[in-house]
């Protein structure tokens, strides 16, 4: 997969309570998404555009297993999240919803400007942002295939029912 988009720069420990605040968890996902990150970046949900990417520091998506954290980003049009490290459950949830999430331990967001254009090649793991170049993790084929299919549900509907790792 090759993805192009405008970047948002976020810091450390963007946890699932920030992405999907508990008090809105009873709402349908589209309404909940309007509150995504409002405690730290109230401008985010209003200004995010379809195709944007997020670049973040350590621990993106740590905390609760609530899938709405990843679902809110998908609903807002985010195409990929690149972070130094992820909460493990969040990263699985993102894959399951067709959202590309790649760890990039050498990512240095302090040198980057929000709003710059990025290009991500998932096969090589190379991320270009303005003049900078970073190496991200490369996922196994079955996961790239599942993400490209739009996530686990469409993947299972295509008949990949037994042992999807094969």
């Amino acid at each position: 997969m090759r993805l192009f988009g405008r970047v948002w720069i976020l810091g450390d420990d963007i946890n699932t309570d920030l992405l999907a605040p508990g008090q809105y968890m009873r709402l349908p996902s589209a309404e909940l998404a309007a509150h995504c990150l409002e405690a730290i970046r109230p401008d985010f949900a209003h200004n995010v555009q379809n195709g944007d990417m997020i670049l973040a520091e350590r621990g993106f998506g740590i905390g609760s297993s609530r899938e709405q954290a990843a679902e809110a980003l998908v609903a807002l049009g985010i195409r990929a999240v690149i972070a130094k490290s992820f909460g493990g459950i969040f990263q699985r949830n993102a894959f399951n919803l067709g959202l590309m999430c790649l760890a990039c331990p050498t990512l240095e967001t302090s040198q980057l400007k929000e709003g710059e254009q990025a290009e991500l090649d998932t096969q090589s793991g190379i991320l270009h942002v303005a003049a900078q170049r970073f190496h991200c993790e490369v996922l196994p084929d079955f996961l790239v295939c599942m993400i490209a299919n739009g996530g686990l549900i469409p993947h299972l509907m295509q008949g990949k029912v037994k042992d999807i790792t094969r």
Binding site: E67, N93, I153
Partner: peptide
């Protein structure tokens, strides 16, 4: 795990 993973488990 999240809800989609759980749906996969519930079904398979």
């Amino acid at each position: 795990i999240g809800a989609t993973d759980m749906a996969g488990v519930a079904a398979t």
